Amino acid sequence: MKIICLQEDAFYELFEKVISRLELKRDEEARKWVSDEQAMDMLGVTSKTTLQRLRDNGEIEFTQPMKKVIQYNKESILAYLEKHKRKTY
């Protein structure tokens, strides 16, 4: 068995780093879904009609937790962009 001794200041500094890292991970999970404005910005489009067309065609994932609230899956938007990338010559 190994025992690690830390001074009190070092212990609390380590503890704060662990908490910060956990909060960052939680924030990343919370950002899985983005608003229509954020989705439009990511896609570089200016029309909500374009977003609706992408939804209707099943090209990007979305959720509708309430009647007028639609959120878009950030990963599906990135996958859509990756699918339509073009290599330069």
Rank of each mutant, 00 (worst) to 15 (best):
M1T: 10
M1I: 04
M1V: 10
K2H: 10
K2S: 09
I3S: 09
I3D: 12
I4Q: 13
I4V: 13
C5P: 04
C5W: 15
C5D: 12
L6W: 12
Q7V: 12
Q7S: 14
E8V: 11
E8N: 09
E8C: 01
A10C: 06
A10N: 13
A10V: 11
F11E: 05
Y12V: 05
L14N: 09
L14S: 07
F15Y: 09
E16C: 03
E16S: 10
E16G: 03
V18E: 09
I19Q: 13
I19P: 00
I19L: 02
I19K: 08
S20K: 14
R21D: 00
R21I: 00
E23K: 06
E23T: 04
L24A: 09
K25L: 11
K25F: 06
K25N: 12
K25D: 08
R26F: 01
R26P: 00
R26I: 10
D27W: 01
E29S: 08
A30N: 09
K32E: 15
K32S: 11
K32N: 12
W33S: 04
W33I: 02
W33G: 01
V34P: 04
S35P: 11
S35M: 07
D36K: 13
E37T: 15
E37A: 15
E37R: 15
A39M: 04
A39G: 07
M40Q: 14
M40W: 02
M40L: 01
M40T: 05
D41E: 15
D41P: 01
M42G: 04
L43Y: 02
L43E: 06
G44R: 08
G44C: 09
G44A: 05
T46V: 12
T46A: 11
K48I: 12
T49Y: 11
T50I: 07
L51C: 01
L51R: 07
L51I: 04
Q52F: 07
Q52S: 11
Q52Y: 12
Q52W: 09
L54D: 03
L54P: 02
L54C: 01
D56P: 01
N57V: 03
N57G: 06
N57C: 05
N57P: 07
N57T: 11
E59S: 09
E59G: 03
E59R: 10
E61S: 12
F62H: 14
F62G: 03
F62A: 00
T63I: 15
Q64I: 06
P65H: 05
M66I: 10
M66Q: 14
K67M: 10
K68S: 15
K68L: 08
K68W: 13
K68I: 08
K68R: 15
Y72H: 07
N73H: 10
N73I: 02
N73E: 11
E75I: 08
E75P: 00
S76N: 03
S76F: 00
I77G: 03
I77W: 03
L78T: 08
L78I: 13
A79E: 13
E82H: 11
E82P: 01
E82R: 14
K83D: 02
H84R: 15
H84G: 15
H84K: 14
H84W: 07
R86E: 07
R86L: 08
K87P: 00
